[in-house]
Write a protein that binds this DNA or RNA. Structure first.
Lengths: 244, 244
DNA sequence: GCAATAGTGTCTATGAGACAATATAGA
DNA sequence: TCTATATTGTCTCATAGACACTATTGC
């Protein structure tokens, strides 16, 4: 009697599609922005003309691993080589892509707006920055990208409470008032100046980069990150007393 | 001239394998344990005889989405239907599986040891609980499962500092001393009794379930979770003063 | 000196940690 | 009453938040 071989052990059982999507954040015009690409109108691809997160299929010839794939997508759309990049989560189901069972590995990236050169790709009619909250409230995105974007915004807003993540949204050198402003933009609320400075200095992740030439008034100190590869975690949160 | 169609838009470009792995935790014999399965010796599958996380290929016929797939793996190995289940992350590369480019979606589960009936599956020579730290220090696991397990243990230990997760490791009703003990086992350090109780009560996620019949001495109050679907987040951490 | 922004000092309520005290059961 | 465990109370000190104050520039 032949041993029962489960279907999954056969070499050629059907496989889902595998994609990588990247939520790219920056701060521009005093707002948290996210990069979206418009899907082409003149193809048979799903969601023609709709805005979507940059991303696409894993190319098993070119991509050594998921992170490399995310970096490739990032480089193609923004020409930025090594921003802060963090895995966000994955979404997969039989129905999220009309072409068939697919799963996507989502990443999110933080970069200074100055670094970005928007690239009109072959497969994207257009590329543009959208205010994060507007992109969530506005006309619905392709696939389940609204869900993914919401998860990314929630994760970013959450982590900003207790990490140095906003520093990755600024070009170096930056000043403490600029950094504070960035925290306030992402959090959507003001932050106490004195407490903010104490917190940043206590975390010991900045190094002085010389006083910045300012337009007028007292010139501020410029800072650089001691280590651009990782954010720092603060012991507590910025939350007002009562709230979690 | 024919438009250049990227290889990826063709319907039949090569796809990676897609799998789901589950890190199943429980507390047993005063230790944090993780469920591992031994890979069969008598097949051509990779890593014969090695211990691995329970998991396997997504079955696009049976699994509606990734979570459903994780639940299926869970049910097959433990006969537990709805434990606490959280997405951990994903790992994918050309080399992690010798059969070819593959990506896995990892989940972690928390369950009371009492609930589990270990099942010897068709594709697993054996199933057993291992102490979490021993599994990490001991002989290496199949694939990149040591990496995944480490991420799971780190995530669990990290979240225990500020969430009610350990409650999902206990059968209801449980007592506050039992819950405290569970926190101490996962954290690997003692916790102050008074502060612990204040914290738990302030979080308001427990409901009384009547006094528990005890062997002797003062009988403790039994508790149930008000909501088994989600953990509660505490405002602060258990960390001793100096440490983060 | 004045305006504007950068940076520091000070006061206080809160709340966590440490530990002491009380409560309730069986023997 | 004694013992063992459960549960509550108290004291103290660090710190986050609020806000006032000083510092340094250009005009």
């Amino acid at each position: 009697m032949a041993p029962k071989v489960p279907r999954q052990q056969q070499p050629d059982f059907p496989r889902p599609y595998t994609t990588v999507d990247v939520v790219i954040f920056t701060v521009l015009d005093e707002a948290l922005k996210v990069l979206l690409v418009q899907r082409p109108l003149d193809t048979s691809d799903p969601y023609p003309g709709r805005w979507a997160l940059p991303g696409g299929f894993v190319d098993i010839e070119r991509d050594a691993d998921l992170l490399a794939c995310a970096r490739r997508k990032l480089l193609e759309k923004t020409a930025v080589r090594s921003p802060y990049l963090e895995q966000l989560g994955s979404w997969g189901s039989a129905t999220r892509d009309p072409r068939g069972w697919s799963s996507t590995h989502a990443y999110f990236a933080l970069m200074p707006a100055q670094d970005v050169q928007l690239a009109k790709g072959a497969n994207a009619a257009d590329v543009a920055w959208f205010e994060a909250d507007a992109a969530l409230a506005g006309p619905s995105l392709a696939f389940d990208h609204a869900q993914i974007l919401k998860a990314a915004v929630d994760r970013l807003r959450g982590k900003v409470e207790y990490t140095s993540l906003p520093a990755f949204l600024l070009a170096e050198p930056f000043t403490l008032p600029q950094l504070q402003k960035t925290y306030e933009i992402v959090l959507g609320r003001p932050v106490d100046k004195s407490g903010f400075r104490t917190r940043m200095m206590a975390a010991d992740f900045l190094e002085e980069a010389g006083v910045v030439e300012s337009a007028s008034h007292r010139p501020p100190m410029g800072y650089r990150l001691k280590d651009r590869s990782m954010p720092v975690f603060f012991p507590r949160t910025f939350s007002p007393r009562g709230e979690p």
